[in-house]
Design a protein around this nucleic acid. Sequence first.
DNA 1: AAGACCGATGTTTTT
DNA 2: CATCGGTCTT
Length: 730
Amino acid sequence: MIPCTICRKMVGAMDEWQTLNEAQREAVSYGEGPLLIFAGAGSGKTRVLTMRIAHLISARGVSPRRILAVTFTNKAANEMRERIEQLVGSAQVRQMWVGTFHAICARILRESGRPLGIDPEFVVFDEDDQLSVVKEVLKLLDIDEKRFAPRSILNFISRAKEKLIPPHLYTPVDYFTQIVGRVYPHYQERLEACHALDFDDLLMKTVQLFEQHPDVLERYQKRFLYVLVDEFQDVNQAQYRIVKHLSAMHRNLCVVGDDDQSIYSWRGADVGIILSFERDFPDAHVVKLEQNYRSTQPILDAAFHVVQKNARRAPKRLWSEKRDGLPITVTEVQHEREEAMVVAQHIALSVQQLGRKYGDFVVLYRTNAQSRTFEEVFLNYRIPYQIVGGVRFYQRKEVKDVLAYLRVIQSPSDDVSLLRIINVPTRGIGLQTVEVIRQLAAEQGISLWEAIEHPDLSNRLTMRAYSAVVAFRDLIRYLRTLREKSSVTDLLNEVLKRTDYLQRLGDTRDPEVQSRVENVRELLTATQQFDAGPEAERGLAGFLESVALVADVDSLQESSDRVTLMTVHAAKGLEFPVVFLVGMEEGLFPHIRAINDDPNVEEERRLCYVAITRAKERVHITHARLRSVFGTTSGMFESRFLHDIPEGLRLTWSPAELAHPLPAAQPAPQVAPRTQDAYRVGQRVRHHKFGEGVIMKCEPQTDDHLLTVVFPNAGIKQLLASIAKLEKLS
DNA sequence: AAGACCGATGTTTTT
DNA sequence: CATCGGTCTT
């Protein structure tokens, strides 16, 4: 294909164009109508998407304000914006809508949600808030939360919303869903009373808005001449409806995705949507990007053999120009501690002897709980690491507390946030008092805040309790007066000052308290950044929204040279030279909750595919014979997925071989001589000064052995066996 | 009303 | 095993 003359107009884009392959060029320059791009792992998807947008703007003369680009994470959205800026300039990109489904829906609902009775100042409830609402409703209905877990009730409600089923249309199918059916309407009422929308509401209400108010829909349809959706395999029914509606007028809907990387079905994502896109849009043009620029061919082949077993997938196969590569290694260890140690030793030696950087490595696991052993061991070995995921920053207690103040300041009708802070730090408003306030609110049909301000309240409380409430009331009133004129940072500082929050966290010598203080300070950095940024004029409301819609992957630091630890889910879209895929055992990966059910196993398979395709050069897989799952240790078998990797692509290594990496030029590791050796690789030893360590290398010398030993507390040392008096440990 | 203590209980993945 | 929730004590 020849670059069309208009492409030449793209400033600085010509070089980029030259580097595209045939399929990529087709995807970038394809004109009007529905377009489906199957973009395999590492196939240059983001480049194609950004260049397509740049092409629309500078070659086809489409105004940026008429383009809508939807991504799945904020990180992806920011990245896309930046890269388009580089191609066409920042002034242009300013007016373009780029964001996650949730962010875009929030924007639409704030702009145009009034016909549905949505307060433009609504707050977004996260899972924590949702759970407290469910619990409250359970209490109200006198349902035992031991028997009906709030979390799974919430899950069912969420599923219903994803399928756009409102409370009055919810049909129970068994005893449990009957309970759900009773909770759901009350849940929704409580949200409305708080002027709150949960994550699913953002989507569901947007669909309702479009379907019940065609005039509103038409405005957006007219505006968005081009709609582009990234990660289309992870779209749920509600999201699909939204993009179909938005693009219905101009029919320029471009979706990019990879069915093999669909890993969010438990959250409502439906692989069927991308697989049947061609049925929904018979005139859709389909482009497949199958050239991979990331991995070596053996890695791609191994991944292919794992995912190929799936019944529901579009046929395709990735290939790479990097024909040569080393096989995947598979190592069996005794238990999770050895697993972590062997990985740690491998990394330590690779950095020390092979010139690797810590940042070259990632450890991928199925469940967050697995990170713990690695954290402990890495700490021991002095290996710098960063964990992505786990307890997310904005979900930490102290951060949520402080944010709850800001939320109450922003919208006092938010009962959930108000309850969170009414007695935090403790100020003499106990359960009894809160109950009286609730009662009054229920009787009058008003919010808790209005009840606090209600003249009748003083009659119902003791003098002591009432004055405590008045003090709280005046505090919030005072803080609210600052709302308009202060920056978010000043406001937050005032909250901290007036509540004495940090001091009341406890003894600052307690490391637990220190980390909490640090987290609050971290939040202050976030507000400062916000105040200095382009969104600053949106004030407190803008800040709260940006906070509600961030995920943890968004905060991954690529610049610092550290090993990354994260779940496979969190790794999607990322790449690393060396991948450790750990805990490859039946019941863990595939997860026990998935092994009885075909569609679930297919998803685990895709998850495994995603994990392997993160690697540029090497994949090391480990599995343990024994693993303790909270307290009890059980015997494990290697994952079925390992059997799907053909012999030629896979190499079985011993723990010592994995712990002791050799230059990449040597495919098979050479095992240190064992015969008549007092020392062998993998032997645990104790040194009088360096403490405990593990022998990594054992080189015969004349009448002696040169040992390379890793000491967790002293680093890597080279010692002569005859001189260093090493004590052997079992 | 607040804080300490104890016992039970549940752990996939998260925008 | 670690957090959560509930109960008991001050």
